[in-house]
Design a binder for these strands. Structure first.
Length: 780
DNA sequence: AACTCCGTAGTTTTT
DNA sequence: CTACGGAGTT
């Protein structure tokens, strides 16, 4: 029965079998952390701890799911089921639902994702007549988020002169007001954002001792994975819950803390001993994953950080090959090299495609690699990126569903009230909002009693009918909630709301793909129903479905996770906890990695360095570093210099690959390919600007349009942008457009000289419909 | 009210 | 390059 204890090393064994009291496990990369966590839970259960009393908090849903499966293999399906394991957000969302009444929230509260919350913030800023150029919504959102993560409520904010002063000093004196209005709006909408799920849990546990007691008693054994990435809010929750039994085990690696941008506080792990003076510490230092060369290279880099525990991570594996560095001429060259390399190793070493990963700093780097892999017919899968559930058409349908579950969610209401268009425009919507505010009721209450309020709304009968039709439709959908399953409800909504028909009317490729996405969403509901049926505590309700998608970032997983052999592409952040035989770490350039947003302070830079460490330690056998000397970025080609991290990896671990000769011809920049001519230490300002690099990326760059002030006015008449064109453009004319380049006019429409529309087929851009008055076409 | 085009600003990582 | 908001048209 205790077979699972065999094969553990001494430190692992201690971590698994120390069941009582506080325990900190410092788990170096690849040291078998997941295994220890899994075995520890299994060991608890075999030692007759009721799984009901165990809470395991992970950082991602994926980690939770994986671990649960592994535990089930050891202790059996039925024992594993009643275990509570999940992310902080999902576990506490569930608790908040059952205790919502304490906080004055409905139990069916909506969970706002970042986009939703940003929308609300934008509206608040607009409503307050605050200049959104000075108060960038994203910035405001980040600041509010950091307040919430540090438990600074609106009230606490206004009671703290220091905070107010600090905001005044940075010319953001209205932040407090926006924060207040934002919180009010969420409350009215019956909605919580991600940070609220933690903040409100704290509120619940501090304000209501009986609730705290209840959960303390339930969660007698608490395990927290990735403890180095917990924020203050999460830290306090754990501390409160564990304070009765103090059977708390935290697992983490300070060298892998990479989420401080989201409030993660590395001091939570650094100070664990202060919180629990009796705590036992176990260090897992043997890396079983990677070759010695990789582990040693990673150690050298991370040792540059000031802030860290001393650790001695080592590997007994083979020494392994050196890290290979490829210097690319452009981002396309880089991608081609990587794809070519994968192809080559796939054949020469019979590597599976799934042995490879491509890791990058930013999601926008994916495209080049997708192109290159597709060209070579290499199967791949992109993880992360824009979530399936964030696509507009998907969010629209979800908007309806949200509204059914929580009709106070005005975000959802106004998203769908006129989509597809049903004649309820902005003016009408504004009247509804203003009126509801003046009466201090919600818009849904106005719509519930439309007849009663109609005289005061100042809307004509036509609009009133449309409103009442819309609302009856919603009410009819709500009736379905009682009898139908998620799939049937959504299907009915998609049909009866006119959404499907509206999307199907668009026969462009994009339109067709939108229909497919909606179909995909419906399919995922079928999957959800089946999945929930298999769970002991399954809950196939619509509101549970919505919660699941709000809290899960893993995209279209069900569809694509078909076990086929694919190369993995993802950001380094997403790769944490994973491993691959061969890793390509790409885009190793200053201002990209480390990101230009994070190069200003030592702390930021150290986090980037930890990120680099994480990337490097994903690899088992072989690592390739690549960087490009020029990169197509923001529509322009920009110069880049190698990342400082490259020079931090001691040269003894590295081997440079000469760029393939033909890549010099592929690239038009004509740069020399000596790897030493841009040593990392070379200051930026010594770089010479190569004028040729300003060329467009197109393979056949169209003739460079002349600077505006040099247009040859003798041969072509410029249409005056403000209207009166005195020279006629005719069908068949060749024209030049500032943005679209050169094209031919194929069709003209309209008699009013101020309002002539032209169809123009451009060489590169295809057919466009333009209004002459605005298009600034030049006849050539 | 709905649609279209233009211009500009913003570009990190994710529950 | 893209996403969004504004401004103008139909």
């Amino acid at each position: 029965m205790t077979d699972y204890l065999k094969g553990l090393n001494e430190a692992q064994y201690e971590a698994v079998t120390t069941l009582q009291g506080p325990l900190m496990v410092l788990a170096g990369a690849g040291s078998g952390k997941t295994r220890v966590l899994t075995m520890r839970i299994a060991h608890l259960i075999t030692n007759l701890v009721d799984p009901f009393h165990i809470l395991a908090l992970t950082f991602t849903n994926k980690a939770a799911k994986e671990m649960k499966e592994r535990i089930a293999k050891v202790v059996g399906e039925s024992e594993a089921r009643s275990l509570w394991m999940g992310t902080f957000h999902s576990v506490f969302a569930r608790i908040l639902r059952s205790e919502a009444h304490y906080l004055g929230f409905p139990s069916n509260f909506t969970i706002y994702d970042s986009q939703d919350s940003l929308n609300v913030i934008k509206k608040v800023i607009k409503e307050l007549n605050i200049d959104s150029d000075l108060y960038k919504p994203k910035k405001v959102q980040a600041r509010i988020s950091s307040y919430k993560n540090n438990l600074i409520t609106v009230k606490a904010y206004f009671n703290n002169p220091e905070l107010i002063e600090a905001d005044e000093r940075t010319n953001m004196k209205h932040i407090g007001l926006i924060y207040q209005k934002y919180v009010e709006a969420c409350y009215k909408n019956g909605a919580m954002d991600f940070d609220d799920l933690l903040l409100k849990t704290n509120e619940l546990l501090t304000r209501f001792p009986e609730v705290l007691a209840k959960y303390q008693d339930r969660f007698r054994y608490i395990l927290v994975d990735e403890y180095q990435d917990t924020n203050h809010s999460q830290y306090l929750i754990v501390k409160a819950l564990a304070s009765k039994f103090e059977n708390i085990c935290v697992v983490g690696d300070d060298a892998q803390s990479i989420y401080s941008f989201r409030g993660a506080n590395i001091y939570n792990i650094l100070n664990f001993k202060k919180d629990y003076p009796d705590a036992k510490t176990v260090s897992l230092e043997q890396n079983y994953r990677s070759t010695q060369n990789i582990v040693n290279a990673a150690n050298v880099v991370i040792s540059k950080n000031v802030q860290q525990f001393k650790k001695n991570v080592f590997s007994d594996n083979e020494e392994g090959e050196k890290i290979k560095v490829y210097r690319a001429l452009s981002d396309a060259d880089e991608a081609n090299f990587v794809a070519g390399n994968i192809w080559e190793l796939h054949h020469s070493q019979q590597r599976k495609f799934s042995d490879f990963s491509i890791l990058y700093r930013t999601n926008s780097q994916t495209r080049a690699f997708e192109d290159a892999l597709r060209k070579k017919n290499i199967p791949y899968r992109v993880y992360g990126g824009l979530s399936f559930y964030q696509r507009k058409e998907v969010k629209d349908l979800i908007g309806y569903l949200r509204l059914l579950v929580n009709e106070n969610d005005s975000e959802a209401l106004f998203r769908v009230i006129n989509y597809p268009a049903r004649g309820i425009g902005e003016t009408t919507q504004n009247k509804l909002i203003v009126f509801a505010d003046s009466q201090n009721i919600s818009v849904s209450q106005v719509l519930d009693n439309l007849g009663f309020y109609a005289p005061q709304l100042g809307l004509n009968n036509g609009v009133l009918t449309k409103l009442s039709d819309f609302w009856s439709m919603i009410k009819a959908f709500q009736v379905l909630l009682k009898t139908e399953n998620v799939y049937n409800i959504a299907m009915e909504v998609a049909k009866r709301s006119g959404l499907i028909k509206f999307l199907k009317d668009d026969q462009t490729p994009e339109g067709i793909s939108r229909v497919e996405n909606v179909q995909e969403l419906l399919n995922s509901m079928q999957g959800f129903i089946e999945e929930q049926q298999q769970l002991e505590d399954g809950n196939p309700s619509l509101s549970n479905f919505l919660e699941n998608i709000a809290l899960s970032a893993d995209t279209q997983k069900d569809k694509e996770d078909d076990g086929t052999d694919k190369v993995s592409l993802m950001t380094i952040h997403l790769s944490k906890g994973l491993e691959f035989p061969i890793v390509h770490l790409v885009g190793l350039e200053e201002n990209l990695f480390p990101s230009f947003m994070s190069s200003s302070t030592r702390e930021e830079l150290e986090e980037e360095r930890r990120l680099f460490y994480v990337a490097l330690t994903r690899a088992e056998k072989q690592v390739y570093f690549t960087y490009a000397v020029s990169r197509f970025q923001w529509g322009k080609i920009t110069d880049a210099e190698p990342s400082r991290f490259l020079s931090e990896v001691d040269t003894q671990f590295i081997e440079f690959i000469n760029p393939a000769i033909e890549s010099r011809f592929v690239n038009h920049s004509g740069l020399k390919s000596n790897i030493f001519d841009d040593a990392p230490s070379e200051p930026r300002f010594f770089k010479k600007q190569d004028p040729k690099k300003k060329l467009s990326r197109a393979e056949n760059p169209e003739p460079q349009s002349l600077p505006k002030n040099l247009k040859p006015i003798s041969t072509a008449k410029i249409i005056n942008p403000s209207g009166q064109s005195s020279e006629d453009i005719e069908v068949g004319d060749k024209v030049r457009h500032d943005r679209f380049g050169i094209g031919e006019v194929t069709f003209l429409d309209g008699t009013d000289p101020k309002n002539i529309k032209a169809k123009v087929v451009f060489q590169h851009e295809g057919e466009k419909n333009l209004i002459l008055k605005f298009a600034k076409l030049t006849k050539i």
